[in-house]
Amino acid sequence: MDSLHDKVVLITGGAGGIGKATASAFAKKGASLALVDLNGQALEEVGQELDVSDDKILTIRADVTKEADVERYVRETKEKFGRVDVFFNNAGFEGPFKFLKELDYDSFQKVMSVNVNGVFLGLKHVINMMEEQGSGSIINTISNAGFIGSAGMGAYIASKHAVVGLTKTAALECAGTGVRINGVAPAAIDTTMLSNIEKNISADNVEEVRKQIQSTVPMGRYGLPEEVAQVVLFLASDEASFVTGATYPVDGGALAT
């Protein structure tokens, strides 16, 4: 994937497990990085951990649910690097584990705000820049939750179904402009988010919950953030030049069942 060398890569959720692993993978290809996250301290730690010179990295604390913040992270990236070649629209929030009849409206809204509004705002402002450039690749993090139902995860499931629709629609709207939009659908990836889900399901029986989730994965194990990152790199690269409107599962075969 030599085509990624010297590309400018913008990543939301850049301090999280998948975001961090993907940033590291792009850095090894020689890309410049703009990392966005609401957790400023974690973001700075990631920036320090990556073996990247100061002229090739930018960290931006921002709330993806606020349009002014989204406009700012896009603007600051352009001011430093002059363009955005790859946008990994990755920030997400799992929300509580509750049946719909028990789920309060504010909790539902928070999940939708991050996972849907945040993705929409990122698409809106990055597409505008990329169409002006005449090129670009956007990868939305969907999760296999965009294709299934799951008791107790109604808000998260609904939000990821919405991102599937946004991904397909954006791909069609941008077809022929030089901008490609695809999705990656990780599931059962060993990250803080999955750890939070385990605790939300049963804080007193985390190991049992972990075994139960692993038993639903045909490959019999949790995936690694680095395994998701490699699929993102492919979708971002020139090797995927005829791929748009697609979603690639990274779930150990779960969606195949």
Rank of each mutant, 00 (worst) to 15 (best):
E76I: 07
A185E: 13
I201A: 11
Y105L: 04
D190Y: 04
F242Y: 14
M112V: 12
A25K: 09
D6V: 01
G82E: 07
V8K: 00
D85A: 05
K168D: 02
T169C: 09
V228W: 01
K20T: 08
G47M: 05
N200W: 03
K160Q: 03
G149R: 06
Q230I: 07
I139Y: 15
G95Q: 02
V74L: 05
E45K: 11
I157V: 14
I157C: 10
N196M: 05
D204M: 04
D54E: 15
S150A: 14
E44W: 04
V184E: 09
E207A: 13
K211P: 10
E239Q: 11
F108H: 06
D251T: 01
E79L: 06
M153D: 13
E94L: 11
F88M: 03
I189V: 14
I181D: 11
T77P: 08
K20F: 03
G19L: 08
N205H: 15
D104A: 01
Y105G: 00
I11S: 04
L100Q: 08
L255N: 03
I157Y: 01
V206C: 15
I197K: 11
E102F: 03
S32D: 04
S241C: 03
F242G: 01
K29Q: 13
K20P: 06
D190S: 05
R83E: 14
N140F: 08
V46E: 08
F147C: 04
E67W: 00
E227T: 11
T257G: 02
V231K: 04
L255Y: 00
Y156S: 15
L166C: 05
D51I: 06
H5R: 11
I11V: 12
S137V: 00
A203N: 07
A256K: 04
V243D: 01
V243F: 06
R75W: 08
K66V: 12
Q214P: 00
T177E: 15
V46S: 09
N128E: 14
I197R: 11
G223C: 05
D55C: 03
A171L: 13
Q230E: 14
T169D: 10
K211E: 15
Y248L: 09
S241F: 04
S143N: 12
N89V: 00
A91N: 11
M193E: 03
L38M: 06
E71F: 00
E226K: 11
A162R: 10
G118P: 10
K211G: 13
